[in-house]
Design a protein around this nucleic acid. Structure first.
Length: 652
DNA sequence: TGGTCAACTTAGTATTCAGACT
DNA sequence: AGTCTGAATACTAAGTTGACCA
């Protein structure tokens, strides 16, 4: 199994040092061997995953069950013979294999560990920091933190009080006692020279020659090849995030009390490595140690560390295309489909519960109604002052809704206005059933605006209840279910004739879901401009159309006078031209509509996380639309299981 | 019963890339 | 070839859920 690596380890011929100024901070050990073996690989044009094998102790083709026998690696390479071009290797269909049942996530796991952030590079001496108008040389530690702030100067974050306060407090912790004594007021700090330096740097980066850019690209590819994959149970799998988050200033979303705090640098001593006992364990950089190496095959992560802002654990895990993520995703949609089967009786049940004598049951039932009807999130309690003040269903407060017995010609209207996940505003006016309305009035009676709406309910209680109604049912299943069923229904309703119109319909259906789930985005910075460009195009096209019509008219007149074949033909040609231009115009207008409607709506999140991909795949197959029109490469990789297994009859 | 922690999914935004346009 | 733009990807914050413990 370890043939390859050993072979190379024993006989590296003159190990030419790698090109200078290469950023090899991440792969300090063995680099020459790897460097060399990579060169060999390139020279001989080995297939990609053969290159990959150079880095691992594990020889995939020895164990891959389905692969036809290939020649033994060792021999081929030993004599340096060029291999036949790899035939496109068939993709592993994990969805056709048996799954683990007992909570075991894998039997074998080998990887190379994380890639650390590059070390801090001190500023050149001509780039100065000024305090109170006078230049001041900072210690390395203080300087590094100062650069984090300097880089953000153009961002409005740095104008916020909380951000500045948190930053300054953490910055001072990094200062020497002299610096601390001197630097007492952030307002007297002048980072502008540093800021300009970084701007110049990024300009310089943009202005690099092709060659230089190419070199960086190649280095990144090499890094990806070595650190970007692991071996899990006989298969090479892509890792999602193999780089450790670099230090910097914490940027929370919304009104976050911790914005501006220093996110500290992660060292090997902070890292817990998870892999199998019998794998080749990743090595920490020379002179360092891992915090711990464990072998827990009941979890999916490869590396973890504790972050210092919230004390949360961060993980390195696999890509969505991996078996371990794919199975879970598939399972999620199967749970949602089971909900479909029982949702009617479940709805009947909570409607009954609106009448319950018990307050807790009424609250539970009304909350569930919101989760079902409005696709609200569960809404866990959060620690006050630790995070932005956001809520979900169970954590709604009285101040987040207004009740209108009658509004805009509708009865029993509830107006929601609150900040949800990521501090995205949820605003909605919905007519509800009378019983719900009465219940809400009751829940809000004698309460202050900042009191909980559902004071007898939390997510634990709700999910316990749901679990009793259906195995595997939790609040978030409703979001998945409602999103997917909405897509399916909309696709049935909206579909139209030609391909581009169909794709517009698909986007519309997708958009209906995004609106349901309140997936918003900031309007792109270039939005107005790009709309304008499109409008210019449309105007030009209109003019072109007018011209074409004029020409057609005169051709007709001409034909009337001349009455010969040639002029008749000319009329036909002009007619065609008008038609063609009309179509083009329509297409542009459709595009403009699509874009306008999408201004503040993000389709990606629902597409990636809520819509059963089999619905989309089935739709594509039914209408002969290439799946590439709907899913890009990454998405096709993530949804490979669905693309392979769904036929046009698939019903969610 | 409530609090904490761990593990995992979901989320918007910043950055990079690629290809259309000039 | 250089620039501009939208799409793809990278990044990492912010949720949900369930287990465990007192």
């Amino acid at each position: 199994m370890k043939i390859m690596l050993n072979l190379f380890l024993h006989s590296p011929p003159h190990i030419k040092s790698e090109p200078e100024n290469e950023e090899l901070y991440h792969s300090p050990k063995h680099k020459n061997v790897k460097q060399w073996s990579l060169k060999v690989a390139k020279k001989f044009d080995f297939a990609e995953d053969e290159k990959f094998q150079l880095f691992f102790s594990y020889n995939l083709s020895d164990i891959k069950p389905k692969k036809k026998t290939k020649d033994k690696k060792g021999e081929v390479r030993a004599d340096g013979k060029k291999k036949a071009k790899k035939e496109p290797e068939e993709k592993w269909k994990w969805w056709e294999e048996e799954r683990y049942t007992d909570g075991v996530k894998w039997k074998f796991l080998e990887h190379k560990g994380p890639v650390f952030a590059p070390p801090y590079e001190p500023l050149p001496s001509n780039v100065k920091f000024y305090y109170d108008g006078r230049p001041m040389k900072l210690s390395l530690e203080a300087e590094e933190v100062a650069t984090f702030f300097a880089k953000m100067l153009d961002h409005e974050y740095t104008t916020k009080d909380v951000f500045r306060k948190n930053f300054f407090k953490d910055w001072r912790k990094e200062m020497t006692s002299e610096e601390k004594a001197k630097i007492t007021d952030l307002n007297k700090c002048d980072f502008s020279e540093m800021n300009e330096y970084f701007k110049a740097q990024s300009e310089a980066r943009k202005a690099m020659t092709k060659q230089e850019k190419q070199k960086i690209k190649e280095e990144n590819e090499r890094l990806l090849l070595e650190y970007g994959y692991c071996v899990m149970d006989n298969h090479r799998e892509r890792i999602a995030n193999f780089r450790i988050e670099p230090p910097g200033l914490f940027r929370g979303r919304g009104d976050h009390p911790k914005m501006g705090m220093l996110k500290r640098r992660i060292r090997p001593e902070d890292i817990i490595v998870n892999c199998s006992k019998d794998s080749e364990h990743p090595k920490p950089p020379p002179g360092t140690k891992w915090k711990e190496v464990r072998h827990d095959n009941k979890v999916t992560w490869l590396v973890s560390w504790t972050e210092n802002i919230q004390g949360a654990i961060k993980y390195i895990m696999l890509n969505p295309s991996s078996r371990i993520k794919g199975e879970k995703d598939w399972q999620k949609y199967e749970t949602a489909r089971r909900l479909k089967k029982c949702v009617d009786s479940l709805r009947a049940q909570y409607r009954e519960d609106w009448k319950s004598k018990e307050m807790r049951i009424r609250q539970r039932a009304v909350a569930l109604y919101f989760i079902d009807k409005l696709a609200l999130r569960a809404g866990n309690e959060k620690e006050e002052g630790e995070t932005a003040d956001t809520v979900g269903c169970c954590s709604l407060r009285v101040e987040h809704l207004n009740l209108y017995p009658e509004k805009d010609g509708q009865e029993y209207v509830v107006e929601f206005d609150f900040l949800g996940k990521d501090s995205i505003r949820y605003y909605n006016k919905v007519p509800v059933e009378k019983r719900v309305f009465k219940n809400l009035q009751l829940f809000m009676e004698n309460k202050q605006p900042e009191d909980d709406l559902f004071d007898r309910l939390n997510t634990t209680i709700l999910n316990k209840h749901l679990q009793e109604l259906m195995d595997g049912l939790t609040a978030k299943v409703f979001r998945t279910y409602n999103a997917s069923i909405t897509l399916q229904q909309q696709l049935k309703e909206l579909t139209s004739e030609n391909v581009s119109a169909k794709i517009l319909s698909y986007n519309r259906a997708n958009r209906a879901v995004a609106i349901l789930c309140n997936h918003q985005r900031a309007p792109p910075k270039t939005f107005e401009k790009s709309m304008q460009n499109l409008q210019t195009k449309i105007d030009a096209k209109k003019e072109q159309l007018a011209d074409a019509k004029r020409e057609l008219k005169s051709a007709k007149a001409d034909a009337k006078v001349r009455r010969d074949e040639k002029s008749k033909k000319a009329v036909e040609t002009k007619k065609k031209a008008v038609q063609r231009i009309e179509e083009q115009l329509m297409k542009l207008e459709v595009q403009a509509t699509d874009r306008e409607e999408n201004k503040q709506i993000a389709l990606g999140t629902s597409k990636l996380n809520y819509l059963d991909p089999r619905i989309s795949v089935a739709w594509c197959k039914k209408w002969g639309i290439p799946v590439e029109k709907i899913y890009n490469k990454t998405q096709r990789e993530k949804f490979a299981w669905a693309i392979d297994m769904a036929d046009e009859d698939f019903e969610f």
